[in-house]
Amino acid sequence: MDFTLKIWRQENQKAKGRFETYKIKDISPDCSFLEMLDILNESLVNKLSHPVCFDNDCREGICGMCGLYINGRPHGPDDAVTTCQLHMRKFTDGETITIEPWRAKPFPVIRDLVVDRTALDKMIQEGGYISVTSGGVPDGNAIPIPKHKADQAMDSASCIGCGACIAACKNASAMLFVGAKVTQLALLPQGKPEAAIRVQKMVAKMDELGFGNCTNTYACEAECPKEIKRSNISRMNLEFILAKIVSEETI
């Protein structure tokens, strides 16, 4: 298959970026999207130019490192996949493919298609955890957890932190990312003691970092490679209301 690629190139954070057009030929339909970019890069190196930088790591859809905005969709034209799991058979021969980095104020471009997503870590650091230290914890079976709650918590916990929800949201809102963590921990008895303080702190950090507000368009849910549901956002809203109105703890 042959493609025309329009790729965002930007030397560094301060540089002005632009789109560059590349032609690429004889790509197997079984080739993954990132392997197609590898082939492009190898040809660029052979032409003595600088290859296109893009984040990637596990290439099996779990590390959350890859993330490209392809033809108007985060992770491209397939549902429930990361960019590394997207295959060229999802495109038509001769298609023009426009590749952009994630766009959001808290995600500055580092180079080409690589963006800085440390904002996600910063939100987790505000309270996306249960404050236990190593050792001194009760037996794993000391507190039974209803299966359906454990399963729901697992669904929320399957977030890979790729940022597609933010990239997809017309407001660049991080509500699904934060909501999934808040929900996971709110569902589990172990997470309850810190629930009220956690949601307040994480939301405050999210706002401070410059993410947009949620307007319930659910683009996040539609593009999440792990199919995390919008009910996580709803649950976070509830936790937030309870924390602000019922709880005596303030931040």
């Binding site: 905005y69 108007g72 969709r73 952009e100 104020k105 407001n171 307007t215 368009t217 659910y218 593009e223």
Partner: peptide, 24 residues
Amino acid sequence: IENFLARPIRYKVATKTKTPFMSR
């Protein structure tokens, strides 16, 4: 306005994400 400012550089290709009718 706040939401607009959360994405200072817009995408070139308009979104093709399927979202509920009218929510946008």
